[in-house]
């Protein structure tokens, strides 16, 4: 593979929806291999639109997206979708097959894997999220937290270059939230995490990007960004009540 190139490079990406609403106004960002980065921003900042560009569901109006050196284009979509693992917010959207096994196998099977190799990928991915026991269960028999973990496994099975998570902590109870954090920390993969959960970003990601009105408004160490009250206030970001981040780890 193309080692050396960053996992993700987005340059001057602009996009307007067919109805004319401009969502992105020139986004620039680079994520190096192995980094865990949080993408923060208020509702309507363009976070989801940006995420949809990363695996070519939306195509850039202007600018480019490259995943490990490979540009997102119509003829590279198949490989791009293998390299970018998108985990959607609602696991019921992500898990559409009748059993966990078939769901996790869906991605690698689309890549052409069959038989023992496919089986190995499925077990491997479920093992990494601690859900191997549920392999033959239907997704709707699992708890919400378990479903979210299986959703992560469905993209891990494709051995992606970068894992993109949309609101990974939403609707999770505190224990499931912590378990998911532990799993994400244990993975040896580049992560881009879209979230409103600032403490979660602080726990998991060294670096954060603040997105606001269709551009990257700030990029830096998560701790420094979250300690900057003026920055947070300017972009409708707020820490939970009683929560303060000292600029230096105490």
């Amino acid at each position: 593979m193309t080692s050396g190139s960053p996992s993700l490079t987005v340059s001057r990406l602009a996009y307007a929806y067919p109805d004319g609403t401009q969502a992105l106004y020139g986004v620039d960002l680079t994520i190096e291999r192995g980094e865990r980065v949080a993408l923060l921003g208020p509702n309507g900042a363009g976070k989801t639109t940006l995420v949809m560009h990363l695996n070519g569901i939306l195509t850039a109006g202007h600018g480019t997206v490259e995943v490990a050196g490979l540009p997102v284009r119509a003829d590279t979509l198949r490989e791009i979708r293998r390299r970018v693992g998108l985990v959607f917010q609602d696991p019921d959207d992500q898990l559409f097959m009748p059993t966990v096994r078939e769901d996790v196998a869906f991605g690698p099977a689309n890549l052409g894997l069959r038989g023992a190799e496919l089986d190995r990928r499925v077990r491997d991915a479920l093992e990494r999220v601690g859900m191997l026991d549920a392999i033959d269960r239907p997704p709707h028999h699992l708890s919400f937290g378990q479903r979210r973990r299986v959703a992560v496994a469905t993209v891990l099975a494709m051995e992606p270059e970068i894992l993109v998570l949309d609101e990974p902590s939403s609707n999770l109870d505190p224990a499931s939230r912590r378990e998911l954090a532990e799993i994400l920390k244990s993975l040896d993969v580049t992560v881009l995490m879209v979230t409103h959960d600032l403490p979660y970003a602080l726990e998991l990601c060294e670096r954060s990007l603040v997105m606001s009105e269709g551009v990257i408004a700030a990029d830096g160490p998560t701790r420094a960004l979250l300690a900057d009250e003026r920055l947070l206030a300017a972009h409708r970001l707020e820490l939970p009540y009683g929560f303060a981040v000292p600029a230096q780890p105490g």
């Binding site: 198949r78 970018v84 869906f106 099977a109 890549l111």
Partner: peptide, 23 residues
């Protein structure tokens, strides 16, 4: 709407219009 989101999720995992035979 859920159907549309599921379709997006399928596309994201390499769906090209044909369900792979897994079992």
């Amino acid at each position: 709407e859920r159907g549309e989101r599921v379709h997006l999720a399928m596309l994201s995992r390499g769906y090209t219009g044909e369900m792979p035979t897994i079992r």
